[in-house]
Design a protein around this nucleic acid. Structure first.
Lengths: 137, 137
DNA sequence: ACATATTCTACTAATTTGATAGGTTTTATT
DNA sequence: AATAAAACCTATCAAATTAGTAGAATATGT
């Protein structure tokens, strides 16, 4: 399961994606459209900004806008940003790799071998689904 | 990521799978082999027993043994038992379905549509990998 | 000047995770 | 029958995570 934060982030990106290259949206409007607590959404949009997915304008008439193409932002990207590793165990994670404390040899570890298969397939489908997937008809 | 509890459970089942139909194993031995805190493993084996995956004998010379065929116990099964839904969002979960509070129509929800794709593919690979997968050479 | 909107930091309550503790029950062996 | 070994069961707990709230600072168009 993904966190609510991650789900909110995806929904916010979809909202912004619907107006891609057509101006800003206010946090308040996104929050209202998707029933997301406004103050919580503020934090989320800020994180998305720091990660380079959205841009913003401050002050009167400001707001947020999508910076990247909706087709270039995958569920995998956003999941990693908010919820971390896609892999089931840290020792097969790509972006969040951590060695097992008691692993003698990673090359021959059967757990690693099988969990890598799961990670690969899960990662593939999560990369295939993008913000633009949610925008289709 | 899966919980440590779930990972411990899989490792314990693999240990028991290595002796499938060849007698019992003590909790203490499994714990030592896999560096799992013994008292924590006791709880895990008990849960696995209540779920029907393992059987046990009490008293002197007792222990645990695998009840189901290793090929019939998938990572998906054990993940669901300890960590819950495989799906990214509750509204597309099969065994842990929960309706979205603010969803107008599930049939036309684009989030549901895409997250179902992810769930299906993730679930498939997690069902393909079984305890016997970890036991191969 | 003023209203509006983002930005930033800190705090908090509830839940989950990863255990630990201690006692009860069952059973094979002596 | 006594004993030791093993599973069984329930409660507790510290640390981390999650899902927010709060409040002020900063920037900007009118």
């Amino acid at each position: 399961m993904m966190s609510k934060k991650c789900k909110y982030a995806i929904k916010a990106l979809v909202q912004l994606g619907g107006k891609f290259k057509q101006g800003n949206m206010f946090t308040a409007d996104i929050a209202a459209n998707e029933s997301i607590p406004k103050k919580f959404l503020e934090q989320i949009l800020l994180e998305l900004k720091h990660a380079g997915y959205v841009g913003s304008h401050k002050g009167y008439g400001g707001g947020y806008f999508l910076k990247k193409d909706p087709a270039e932002i995958s569920v995998a990207d956003i999941y990693r940003l908010f919820d971390g590793a896609i892999a089931l165990v840290p020792c097969v994670a790509v972006q969040f790799y951590e060695k097992c404390e008691d692993c003698k040899d990673e090359k021959t570890c059967v757990y690693r071998r099988e969990f890598e298969v799961i990670r690969e397939r899960t990662r593939d489908v999560m990369k295939e689904v993008t913000i633009s997937s949610f925008l289709k008809e």
